[in-house]
Design a protein around this nucleic acid. Sequence first.
DNA 1: TTGAAAGCGCTAACAT
DNA 2: ATGTTAGCGCTTTCAA
Lengths: 333, 333
Amino acid sequence: MKITIKDIAKLADVSTATVSKIVNNKDQSISSATREKVKSIIEEYNYVPNRIASSMITKKTNSIGLIIPDIANPFFPELARGAEDMANKNGYNIILCNSDNDLSKEDSYIEMLQEKMVDGIIFTSSSRRSSVSNTLKKLHIPIITVDREIEDLKSNCRIKVKNREGAFEAVSYMISRGYKKIVNLAGPMTSKPSKDRLEGYIEALVKNNLVVDEKYIIEGSFTSEWGYKGILDIIRKKLEFDSVFCGNDLIALGVLKGLRENGLNVPKDIGVVGFDDIYMATMIDTELTTVRQPNYQMGYKAAQLLINMLENKHYIDKEYILDTKLIIRKTTR
Amino acid sequence: MKITIKDIAKLADVSTATVSKIVNNKDQSISSATREKVKSIIEEYNYVPNRIASSMITKKTNSIGLIIPDIANPFFPELARGAEDMANKNGYNIILCNSDNDLSKEDSYIEMLQEKMVDGIIFTSSSRRSSVSNTLKKLHIPIITVDREIEDLKSNCRIKVKNREGAFEAVSYMISRGYKKIVNLAGPMTSKPSKDRLEGYIEALVKNNLVVDEKYIIEGSFTSEWGYKGILDIIRKKLEFDSVFCGNDLIALGVLKGLRENGLNVPKDIGVVGFDDIYMATMIDTELTTVRQPNYQMGYKAAQLLINMLENKHYIDKEYILDTKLIIRKTTR
DNA sequence: TTGAAAGCGCTAACAT
DNA sequence: ATGTTAGCGCTTTCAA
């Protein structure tokens, strides 16, 4: 039988109210004699307060839901870590949910989380979510969207990254290094970041008086498999190109592999630029030139914003845009 | 004001007991007329049951704590994903905790999780934990240790991997390929898997009548930084060697980088073998020969075992040992 | 087939 | 400085 606050109260010969105050450090008005007595009994009997019972009254669980597509995708662990660090620092816990970009899985997680009374949700929504689902509409706790915003979702905090600007800077740099036929192996266009990066690519081309050729823009997914397959396709079709701007680093890794297998030298024959700056970007033979995204910061900031809203009970509807940074390494000449 | 079971009961003109039964599908004895009526009202008013209140009574939260050193370390995302998949399939949630191998952080998470009334814990304990802490001793919920067991922790389920056998197989293979001077750049010896892998290394050497030279065994940490630094050290010291058996893939990646920077060709000059088979092992130029660990499976199995114990209220104290597999790729001749 | 009522462990307002 | 008490939202006997 687990020991409860009542047991402690009885053992210490005080009321449960007194014990409660001591357990929660609201003991300004408690004499140090009783405080010590109660504390030692708590210690002795190894009392563990039931926070679920507290939650019933305080209406706070100090839990935050984190919904991401897949923790096994190298983009998300750092984000999750950032969120968890900030959460932990403030006495919150993170409930991890992998949605696999599946809309119905997302919705069912959202419902689960609400039933578990989480205080708020950090959400990297599916690239495929075009509008607000019923579940999302009915949501009555604060939600922060990270990386991918949800159009039509009213009043929520958004954390984004300068995708367009980052891509613009990267492609401009490629052009400045003499690359002229730049293939864009993009992510899925259902995702806002993908769209924004494409915009940046086009903008850089236009500003430098290069033609934008649709044959050079190929949409795929954010995986190295797609990068590999994509570049192989391009080579087979004998498309003339001197460089590849990739939707993310995973794609770039696949591209590098495909290029290598075809005897193409990077950066001599072909230049390659990624996006994200995942950990592996520096561990490969020819270190990847890429656009760094502040992954950890995104998670950290998201949790910070959310906790702020929670503690101040003051919900803001605002957009935070974090900077990217071009990291020049070895895959561009 | 949030809507409660009482509101629904009043609106449907039934008792809360009836609503409760319907919400939880214990409605064999409810007439379909009432069932339909109640369900439509629940729908209409968008009622979300408060599972925390249920938990008070049922003594089950359907939450599982997952304590790992660091989700940003490539070894853990897959493990976490495996655990979350199995949990989700059974209606459980995962609370993610990053301990940074910090004993006091581990303990404080364990306490937090107990206060939140999680049903059980999946725990990859710090490599530095030599014996059972007070917190761990007082634990009164089931705990499954994964990868690293805790000596002295009584009656808990353990999931491990054949580290010794895997290392033995790998090093034996290296020897069969003609490598004779095999450096072992190991992980920290405070970690059981490290110790076991070292044992396997030694065993293979001995069985093949090669001398075991302490100069060739260097203990470090499970990071690529250490692998890089370690190999640089070895080269500087002009130690004669023809191959490196690494404590894990991260170390191997660092080794590969150091070798490359010193103009050493892999596998012609030097052979390299890792351990884990992380995703990146195939994405690098010279794909890494390594020992595959069933990361996802470990998490999946851990959650499965835990949930089984929870549902059957029958706690087992048993060891599950999963197989490793030597994956021969390009870093060995 | 349905409902009344006790109570899970705790907090917070209010009283003393 | 401490205690009394109502009640958070729900489940679960037990009775009707």
